[in-house]
Nucleic acid binder design. Structure first.
Lengths: 171, 171
DNA sequence: GAATATAATCTGTTCAGCAGAACATCTGTC
DNA sequence: GACAGATGTTCTGCTGAACAGATTATATTC
């Protein structure tokens, strides 16, 4: 269960108690493992996420995918170029709005994706190797809930983390 | 408690079920909020983590800090330059090994750090805004456990996420 | 039909990770 | 004690990605 094991930590080790630090360590470890897992896939882990998005019905546009997985729209352009060149997905104009392009995984892309998922699952296991099955499920669940909430917020709005404190400090 | 709320998700939305996706969303949101919180601090959130590490006793070297917070040693050089220029920390040769330099926070740095911690805490709250206090604690705890484990691994070793599967596919 | 807005692309800049070299210092061996 | 190799820091050059701005094609609004 989720019991603190603070005996692993020295008294003044404030860095390792920081949530931001833990988040960074886990994120980088995931990137490392997922990079191994995705192998030659263009874009590595990001290529995998694009491919996941490309299987959605109804199809989504480039800019929607870019926003969802947090990469710049200009980077999305050449990332899709690479994935399209490998025949894993196609871009086609949205019949309802020909400015935008729908990103659709090909059969080959779907096949590759199914293979990828097994490898990505092992990358997840690597990252969560110190947790038992119950805790893994709990962590995945809590992260997903937080992510869904954050994903629903306006990406252009500030987080307003400084307001109250500066107010109280500046009478 | 940590109950799945899959009713938020469309049937084929495999992207949003991916742990890597959730991790990325939360990590980027933290970076965004922590960037606001750290304001003019050199290096932003990374500057904060360096400052946390600089308060440790006994003092640690540059390369140790770089490894712990996951930044390149060459980047650490000019990040420390900036923090030192602001008078928040000092570098001094380790008396026991004069190749390496101990990074020590100044009084000004400690003061700044205490102010920063309150702001960083608000950034954490922003990221975990959809969780109640119980779930926040659980998530922080699980992340910390995973991070401590990953931090203890050899950073040069591969994650070995592909071995078994490729073996079974190549008889 | 003209003005404005949006999706994708292209260009240029900046920052950070990475590899490699240089330099100082430490460790181990003779 | 002298020497060779290892390690910590800094510097240089390269690459990948974020970001801002301009361009083009298409939609929407008046």
């Amino acid at each position: 269960m989720a019991i603190a094991r603070s005996h692993d930590l020295a008294e003044g080790d404030t860095l390792r108690r920081d949530f931001g630090w833990a988040l960074g360590v886990v994120f980088r470890a995931y990137l490392k493992a997922a990079n191994e897992a995705t192998g030659t896939l263009p874009g590595g882990p990001r290529g995998h996420q694009v491919l996941e998005a490309a299987t959605r019905q109804p199809p989504v546009s480039q800019s929607v995918i870019a926003q969802e997985i947090g990469i710049d729209r200009t980077v999305m352009t050449y990332l899709l170029d690479d994935l399209e060149r490998e025949g894993l997905l196609t871009r086609r104009p949205d019949p309802a709005d020909r400015r935008s392009r729908q990103v659709v995984a090909t059969d080959k892309g779907v096949q590759r994706l199914e293979h990828l998922r097994a490898l990505i699952a092992r990358a997840q296991d690597y990252v969560l190797q110190d947790l038992d099955e119950t805790d893994r499920t709990a962590l995945r669940c809590l992260m997903q809930r937080s992510a869904l909430k954050l994903d629903s917020l306006d990406p252009t709005a500030p987080c307003n983390v400084i307001q109250d404190i500066t107010d109280s400090n500046c009478p």
